[in-house]
Amino acid sequence: MRAYLLQTHEMLFDAHNHAFRVLGGVPRRGIYDNMRTAVDKVGRGKERTVNARFLTMVSHYLFEAEFCNPAAGWEKGQVEKNVQDARHRLWQPTPQAESLDELNLWLEERCKALWEDIPHGIEPGSVANAWADESECLMVAGRPFDGFVEYRKRVSPTCLIHFERNRYSVPASFANRTVSLRVYPDRFQVVGTVRISVCGRA
């Protein structure tokens, strides 16, 4: 589990990268709700217009993405019940953290500890025991997916670009040019013809 400030594409991609790192590999199938960061349009039955960037991530990791029918929570097994139970275990008492990075480090260690304590419910032993048995079936993750979201931006004469109601300064060589703004959870990359500038995200 990880905490993010927003529920956007770049956060979703980052969450997958960390999940596969912690799990030690990639499952062959992922079951998803019809969240807007993955599905652009829900059609009849199993028809879906899947977000192009989400498909790029799925192709990178080579797993199969399946989407539940609308209002059919039972198709996700015990996920929603487990999430409800996990909230109580994780957030009581409320953790103290000075930053989002510190909170996410705590969440990762706390989840691993809970895996050891929580019975699987179907298989004998704990969640950690079941994970150890199933980990051999995971695919190798390889390098993390480069999970940016890209926008085309026009740099002002005063070397500023606008994004999410904020203004960011870029090198003078980008003035009056159209650049590519690559958005990550914690930073931006401003890509010009021959130069890349990196700045922190507000």
Results as ranks from 00 to 15, higher is better:
G25C: 03
V26T: 08
P27F: 06
R28E: 15
G30S: 09
G30A: 12
G30Q: 07
N34G: 12
M35R: 14
M35Y: 13
V39M: 03
R44L: 11
T49P: 01
V50Q: 06
A52P: 06
A52H: 14
A52M: 10
R53Y: 03
R53S: 09
F54K: 14
L55T: 13
T56W: 12
T56N: 15
T56V: 13
H60K: 09
F63A: 04
A65C: 05
F67W: 04
C68K: 10
A71G: 12
A72W: 07
A72P: 03
G73W: 02
G73V: 01
G73S: 09
W74H: 14
V83E: 02
V83F: 08
Q84V: 04
D85H: 08
A86G: 01
H88Y: 15
H88N: 12
R89E: 00
Q96W: 03
Q96E: 09
A97E: 02
A97F: 01
L100I: 09
D101F: 05
E102T: 03
L105C: 00
L105D: 00
W106H: 10
C111H: 02
A113C: 01
A113S: 08
P119Q: 12
G121N: 13
S126G: 02
V127I: 15
A128T: 02
N129T: 07
W131Q: 12
L138Q: 07
M139Q: 15
V140I: 14
A141K: 12
G147V: 12
G147P: 14
P157A: 06
P157E: 06
T158E: 11
C159H: 09
L160R: 14
L160K: 14
I161G: 04
F163W: 12
R167G: 11
Y168G: 04
Y168V: 04
V170N: 07
